[in-house]
Nucleic acid binder design. Structure first.
Length: 362
DNA sequence: TCTGGGGTCCTTTATCGG
DNA sequence: TCTGCCGATAAAGGACCC
């Protein structure tokens, strides 16, 4: 299996630079209001020199670079560029799994016989994308997804890294465990405390050591990945399984009526998304974030799928009331989500055989 | 007045029927 | 009739990703 991971370089910022070339030579931050509660979505490479990174609060970014330009994300514009990029990629490599607007996996085995040929195909993809959109991307080529993904991140921007079969473990070994997809802040900290800093050290753990550190399926999976073992193939044509809208308020809210108003507004947006995707939903979830950043959620599942804003709103408000009874307090965020999605045309069929549920049986 | 919004997947716990 | 166990599944939380 020969596959590639493609990652567009500083995608949102790169698009904004194309739309307004004046931005190109300056530190640019795409994200929220630097005087509000937003975070950085993407920073261009000038801004990164000031230590600005994705997910950093915009207030912090402003502190680090007071002359940076801040712009709000324009997702519909990025979607257009993304569409153009991926149709260009498919012109060179037909089988592609998109995992985001700005990244995805390519099946190179389909168009290249060996890793030498694969490198040439990857270069052809980079050239084609640049020609069609003026955007630059980085690519990793490897026998396994996890290795290709890590490889694509090695020589940004515009880099190409090829990891040939047999060298996967050697390639990963010196890298920090945090570089491994699936190792987030929590796992990183647990490993750090135990003195495990690199992928090589994670790969060398025996079963018992691993159990103490990262129990369950997760540990085995991450150790496999650190060894370059990853049998996942490309996933083509996956369906969405949930839809949600949430919002961090400018200031924390306590007033129940105000919160209900916000939830009703979000429920209308969720219903609109549902309608556009031709789906109905059986489960409604309300999400709350308190001032201390802790998150609570309450959900309910119906026998029959729904898609109307009023029903979603009623359920969401009831769930909010329940959550606030369990734990009162000011909220910095509230959200409404639906899951258990059912295609609208299947509604009549599904309503028939839908099994009864606990709270209904009682 | 640090810390978004949209998702996915996994684990644990509660609950129910048999 | 009471109790315990088992398997499903819903609910809730948590980690992670872009």
């Amino acid at each position: 299996m020969i596959l590639a991971h493609l990652d567009l370089d500083a995608f949102f910022a790169a698009v904004e630079e194309l739309e307004d070339p004046e931005l190109r030579e300056r530190p640019l931050i795409v994200g929220g209001d630097p005087h509000g509660r937003g975070v950085v979505a993407t920073a261009n490479y000038h801004a990164r020199r000031f230590g600005i990174q994705s997910a950093m609060s915009c207030a912090e970014a402003l502190r680090r670079c007071s002359h940076a330009t801040f712009v709000r994300p324009r997702h519909s514009v990025y979607r257009e560029y993304s569409r153009s990029v991926w149709s260009t990629v498919r012109g060179v490599v037909p089988t592609v799994e998109r995992t985001g607007l700005d990244e995805g996996y390519l099946d190179l085995g389909e168009v290249a016989g060996d890793f030498l040929a694969a490198r040439a195909v990857a270069e052809a993809v980079q050239t084609a994308v640049r020609a069609a959109t003026s955007l630059s991307c980085s690519i990793g080529v490897a026998p396994a997804k996890v290795v290709a993904k890590v490889a694509s991140d090695r020589r940004k921007p515009g880099g190409l890294t090829v990891v040939v079969p047999g060298s996967e473990a050697r390639f990963l070994a010196p890298l920090a465990v945090r570089k491994l997809p699936g190792v987030g802040p929590k796992a990183d900290e647990r490993l750090r405390v135990a003195g495990i800093a690199t992928c090589g050290e994670l790969a060398a753990l025996n079963d018992e050591e691993l159990r103490g550190l990262l129990p369950g399926k997760v540990g085995k999976l991450l150790r496999d990945r650190a060894r370059g073992i990853d049998t996942r193939g490309l996933e083509l044509g996956t369906e969405r399984i949930s839809i949600s809208v949430e919002e961090t308020f400018e200031r924390d809210l306590t007033d129940r009526e105000q919160l209900h108003d916000e939830l009703r507004r979000m429920a209308r947006e969720v219903a609109e998304h549902l309608r556009k995707s031709g789906k109905t939903a059986r489960t409604v979830t309300t999400k709350l974030r308190y001032t201390d950043f802790s998150i609570r959620s309450r959900s309910t599942t119906l026998r029959v799928a729904i898609d109307d804003a009023e029903t979603i709103a009623e359920l969401a408000c009831g769930l909010l009331d329940r959550a606030l009874e369990d734990r009162p307090g000011a909220l910095r965020l509230a959200g409404v989500g639906v899951s258990g999605l059912v295609a609208y045309h299947q509604l009549a069929l599904d309503a028939d055989w839908a099994a009864p549920f606990q709270d209904v049986r009682a």
